[in-house]
Design a protein around this nucleic acid. Structure first.
Length: 825
DNA sequence: TGCGGTGAATTTTTT
DNA sequence: ATTCACCGCA
C-alpha cells in the first residue's frame, strides 16, 4: 500500500484509504497480496554484484547507448529508440538495474505499456535478466489495468462504488442508442456510433462534460456536451465506467484530490513508459501528475512510429518531452540489430520527408544484403499471384538466400480489405496462412452473450447484460415485452430483473413470452444463489449456458459458423479454470481482450501495418503501394499533411519490419468495393532512395498468359499500333508503364544503367497526348473500352463505360476516344 | 416475432 | 462485393 509506512500527513491519508478499501471483500484479498509484495520485496536479496557496479548479467551485452539509457537513473529520461534498436532490452535492463541497485523496490516502480502483450513480455524479460523470478511489480501493466487498480481504491471520490463494471464497446453503443432515442434525436443523421466516437475523443483529451471547450461544443448538432453529460450520469447510475473513463476519472481524482495525488507521487519512485509516442492527452496528464514527485520518469518511444493519431495519440507528447521535463536526458538508440543496410536506408529515405522529427539515423554493423525490391503489377490479383509464387520460391531458397520458413514471412497491408485477394490466392494454391488481427476472442458475439449471462449471475443488477440476453436465444420477448419490463423497472425504481419479476407478479405479461420470462428470471435467481454459495464456478458456468438455452441455440443453428461458436464457448469455459470464481474472471476479462491462443504451425502471416508494429520477419511483402490506398485518401482528406505524415510513418514501420528482404509492390488496377479503380504508384515509392532499390520486372511481361485482359481493346487502332502479338496483354501493360510513377522509376533506373522494361519501346500513346478530360468527353480505356466522362474529382475521373459500367479511373489511363480510333456513334 | 428484400456504407484498433 | 441495418409483410 503506497505510503503505508511513511509518516506525517500522508499517514492520515493512507488510513483513510485503507478504511475505505477494507470494507470491500474483493479488495481486501488484493490488499493481502499487496502486503505480501511488500514483504517479498524486502526479502529479495539485492545483488551484491550489481551494487558493486560490475558483472550484472543484464548490463553485459548492452551497447553504449543502451547502457547510458539503463544507467541514467536520476531525473527525466527520454529514450528515443528507433525500430529494432533493442528498446525492450534496455527498458527491462533499466528496471532490473533499479531493483538490484536498491534504488527502488519492485512495488515502487510504475511501468506502463499499451498492450497486455507488451506488459507480459516485459514481465518475462525482467525475470530473465535478473536471473530469477521477481515477485511483485504490481504496478507493471497497461494504462488501463493500472487505472482500474487505482480507481477501485478511490472510486468513492467520484461517486462510484468500488465494484464498478467496465463496459465494453457493445454496452457503450447500446447506452448511446438509448440516449439518442430518449432525446428524440434522428438516429439516421446522428448515429450512436458517431456520438460514441465524439465522446471517446473528448475523453482521450481528458475533457469532462464541463470542460469541453466551447469551440468543440458544436459537435453532434450542438447537443454533444449535453449528451455527454447524460451519458456520464447514466454510467454513474449503472455503477459503470467505459475504457476512456478509467483514465479520465483518475486524472480528475489526481487533479482534485491533492492528498491522493501526493501519496502516489511519493510512492512511485521511478516511472517507465513504453511507446510514449502513442500516449493521448489523458495518459500524458496522468503521467505528468504522477511524475512530479520524484521526477524520475523514463519515456521510451519513437516519434517516427507514431501511427495512432486517429485514435487520440499525440505525437506532440514525445516531441515536447524536453520542454515538459526540463533537464531531461535524451538518449538515442540508433544501432539497429534487425535489418540490412539497404532496408534501413530505404526506410530512412521515406521518413526523411516528414517535418518536425526529433531525428534519428539508424545504422547497422551489417554489411551485405538484398536491396529493397519494387515491382508493379497490372492488377491486385496478379499482385497476389506473384507474391504467392515468391513465397513458395523463398521457401525453397532462391536468390542465394537460405530457404525461409513460412513463419518468417509476412504480408503487411494498409487496409484489411486488401487481405482478401491474398486469402483467395493462398487458398487456391494451398499455402498455409494466418490472419493476425480481426475480431478478438472476447469480442465475438457468442462470447459476449455468454459473458452477459455470467455477469447477470454475479450481479443481477447489471441491466445492460440483461438487455443483451433477455431475448437471446429467442424467447418471444420482442420490443413490446422489453418496453413493458423497462417500464415496470422504472416505475418501481428497480433493476430490470426485478422489474421483470414485478411485471410477472402483476400478470402484466402473459402468453408464451410471459412463461419464458418467468423461466429466465427464476434461472437468474438460482444462479445468483449459486454464486453466493460459492462452489464450483466452472460447473455453474456450464449450467448457466445449459439452462439459459444458449448452448442449444447454437446447436440448433445450422449456419456454417455455429460449430465454431460452440467451440469458442467451450474455450471460454476452459478459460475459467485459471480463476477462482466468476467474479475474478469477469474482472480480468474486461481488460484482457487478447486473442485466445495463436494458431500453431508454419504459416505466412497476413496483417495490417498497424498490427505489425513491434513485430519482425525475415521477409516482408508490402503490397498495395498506390496513391489513395497507401497513403490512404481518407487519411489525407481528413487530416491533410498531418495525415500524410502519419501514413508515411506507417510506411516506415512497414519497411523496418523486414530483417533481410523487403518487397514493395503496387497494382495499376484494383477492385475496390466491387468497382474497378486504377491508381498511380504511391508517392512514397518516389521517396525510396534509388540506390537501395531494385526494380523488378513482372514475369508476365515476357509472354505470361493473361487471357481476356481487355474488353474492347482489339477494336482500337491505337492498340493495334503496339505489337502484333499478345495484343491485350501488352496494351494493358503499356498503360502501366505510361504512368508518371513508372516514368520516374524508369528515368531513375536508366540513369543508373539499369535495363528498362521492354515494353517502354513500344509506347504509342505518349504522355503529352494524354490530356485532362471534362464531363461528357468520349474516352477510351484499354481494359474497359469506350465510355463517357460523367464526373471529375481531382486526377480521378468517373467514366460511364459502354460495356464495363461506371468506374473511377485516373485520367492518365484514358485516351481521347477519337485518338483511339473511335467513330462517334 | 421473424424472415427476406432493399439501400447505404465501407481505414487503421487497444483497452 | 459484401456486410449490415432497417422495413414491410406473413
Amino acid at each position: 500500500m503506497p505510503g503505508r509506512r511513511r509518516s506525517g500527513k500522508r499517514r492520515a491519508v493512507s488510513r483513510n484509504i485503507l478504511r475505505t478499501v477494507l470494507f470491500l471483500p474483493a479488495l481486501s484479498a488484493y490488499l493481502a497480496r499487496m502486503s505480501a509484495h511488500d514483504d517479498t520485496t524486502a526479502a529479495i536479496p539485492l545483488s551484491q554484484r550489481a551494487m558493486a557496479g560490475q558483472g550484472a548479467p543484464y548490463l553485459d551485452d548492452l551497447n553504449p547507448a543502451q547502457r547510458l539509457a539503463v544507467e541514467t537513473l536520476d531525473g527525466p529520461v527520454l529514450m528515443l529508440a528507433g525500430a529494432g534498436t533493442g528498446k525492450t532490452k534496455a527498458l527491462t535492463a533499466r528496471i532490473a538495474h533499479l531493483m538490484t541497485t536498491g534504488r527502488a523496490r519492485p512495488n515502487e516502480i510504475l511501468a506502463v505499456t499499451f498492450t497486455n502483450k507488451a506488459a507480459r513480455e516485459m514481465r518475462d524479460r525482467i525475470g530473465r535478466s535478473m536471473g530469477q523470478t521477481v515477485e511483485g511489480m504490481p504496478w507493471l501493466g497497461t494504462f488501463h489495468a493500472i487505472c482500474v487498480k487505482l480507481l477501485r481504491r478511490h472510486a468513492e471520490l467520484i461517486g462510484l462504488k468500488s465494484n464498478f463494471t467496465i463496459l465494453d464497446t457493445d454496452d457503450q453503443l447500446r447506452l448511446m442508442k438509448q440516449l439518442i432515442l430518449a432525446e428524440n434525436i434522428d438516429e439516421k443523421r446522428w448515429p450512436p456510433r458517431m456520438l460514441a466516437g465524439i465522446i471517446d475523443n473528448w475523453k482521450n483529451r481528458a475533457w469532462t462534460p464541463a470542460s469541453v471547450p466551447a469551440a468543440e461544443a458544436g459537435a453532434f448538432n450542438n447537443r454533444g456536451t449535453e449528451l455527454y453529460d447524460y451519458y456520464q450520469q447514466r454510467l454513474k447510475t449503472l455503477n459503470a465506467v467505459d475504457f476512456g473513463d478509467l483514465l479520465l476519472h483518475m486524472v480528475t481524482i489526481f487533479q482534485t484530490q491533492p492528498d491522493v495525488l501526493a501519496q502516489y507521487q511519493r510512492w512511485f519512485k521511478y516511472i517507465l513508459v513504453d511507446e510514449y509516442q502513442d500516449t493521448n492527452v489523458a495518459q500524458y496528464l496522468w503521467l505528468r501528475l504522477l511524475a512530479q514527485g520524484h521526477r524520475n520518469i523514463c519515456c521510451v518511444g519513437d516519434d517516427d512510429q507514431s501511427i495512432y493519431g486517429w485514435r487520440g495519440a499525440e505525437v506532440g507528447n514525445i516531441l515536447r518531452f524536453e520542454k515538459d521535463f526540463p533537464g531531461a536526458h535524451v538518449v538515442r538508440l540508433e544501432q539497429n540489430y534487425r535489418s540490412t543496410p539497404h532496408i534501413l536506408a530505404a526506410a530512412s529515405g521515406v521518413i526523411d520527408a516528414n517535418q518536425g522529427r526529433l531525428g534519428k539515423t539508424l545504422w547497422t554493423a551489417e554489411q551485405e544484403g538484398e536491396k529493397v525490391r519494387l515491382i508493379g503489377h497490372w492488377d491486385g490479383d496478379e499482385e497476389a499471384r506473384w507474391i504467392g509464387d515468391e513465397i513458395e520460391a523463398l521457401q525453397k531458397g532462391t536468390r542465394g538466400l537460405d530457404p525461409l520458413g513460412l513463419d518468417g514471412m509476412a504480408i503487411l497491408v494498409r487496409a484489411s480489405h486488401q487481405m482478401r485477394a491474398f486469402e483467395d490466392r493462398f487458398l487456391t494454391i494451398g499455402l498455409p496462412y494466418r490472419v493476425i488481427g480481426g475480431p478478438r476472442f472476447y469480442e465475438r458475439m457468442e462470447i459476449r452473450d455468454a459473458m452477459a449471462y455470467f455477469r447477470l449471475a454475479v450481479s443481477p443488477d447489471d441491466d445492460l447484460a440483461f438487455e443483451r440476453i433477455v431475448n437471446t436465444p429467442k424467447r418471444g420477448l420482442g420490443d413490446k415485452a422489453q418496453q413493458a419490463i423497462q417500464r415496470a423497472a422504472r416505475d418501481n425504481g428497480t433493476t430490470l430483473v426485478d422489474g421483470a419479476r414485478i411485471l410477472l407478479a402483476d400478470k402484466g405479461l402473459g402468453g408464451k413470452g410471459g412463461a419464458e420470462l418467468r423461466v429466465l428470471v427464476d434461472a437468474i435467481g438460482r444462479w445468483n444463489d449459486a454464486v453466493r454459495r460459492g462452489g464450483n464456478h466452472i460447473e455453474l458456468a456450464e449450467t448457466i449456458l445449459e439452462e439459459s438455452g444458449y448452448t442449444a441455440h447454437w446447436q440448433n443453428d445450422k449456419t456454417p459458423e455455429a460449430p465454431g461458436r460452440l467451440e469458442n464457448l467451450k474455450e471460454l469455459v476452459k478459460a475459467l479454470e485459471s480463476f477462482e470464481n466468476l467474479q475474478g474472471f469477469l474482472e480480468h476479462v474486461a481488460l484482457i481482450m487478447d486473442n485466445a491462443g495463436e494458431a500453431e504451425g508454419e504459416k505466412v502471416s497476413v496483417m495490417t501495418l498497424h498490427a505489425a508494429k513491434g513485430l519482425e520477419f525475415p521477409a516482408v511483402f508490402l503490397p498495395g503501394w498506390e496513391d489513395g490506398l497507401f497513403p490512404s485518401q481518407r487519411s489525407m482528406d481528413e487530416s491533410g499533411l498531418k495525415g500524410l505524415e502519419e501514413e508515411r510513418r506507417l510506411a516506415y514501420v512497414g519497411i523496418t519490419r523486414a530483417e533481410t528482404l523487403a518487397t514493395i509492390s503496387f497494382a495499376a488496377n484494383r477492385r475496390v468495393y466491387g468497382q474497378w479503380q486504377s491508381s498511380l504508384p504511391s508517392r512514397f515509392i518516389d521517396e525510396l532512395p534509388a540506390d537501395h532499390v531494385e526494380v523488378l520486372t513482372p514475369p508476365g511481361l515476357y509472354g505470361g498468359g493473361y487471357g481476356a485482359a481487355g474488353m474492347a481493346a482489339s477494336a482500337s487502332p491505337a492498340i493495334m499500333a503496339v505489337q502484333a502479338s499478345d495484343l491485350h496483354d501488352k496494351a494493358s501493360r503499356a498503360d502501366v508503364y505510361n504512368s508518371p510513377g513508372w516514368k520516374r522509376l524508369q528515368a531513375r533506373s536508366s540513369a543508373r544503367g539499369m535495363s528498362q522494361p521492354r515494353e517502354s519501346r513500344h509506347m504509342v500513346i505518349d504522355a503529352d497526348a494524354v490530356s485532362s478530360f471534362t464531363t461528357d468527353d468520349r474516352v477510351f480505356h484499354t481494359k474497359f473500352g469506350y465510355g463517357t466522362v460523367t464526373a471529375v474529382e481531382g486526377d480521378k475521373l468517373e467514366v460511364a463505360f459502354e460495356k464495363a459500367g461506371t468506374k473511377k479511373v485516373v485520367g492518365k489511363f484514358l485516351v481521347a476516344a477519337e485518338q483511339a480510333g473511335d467513330v462517334p456513334f
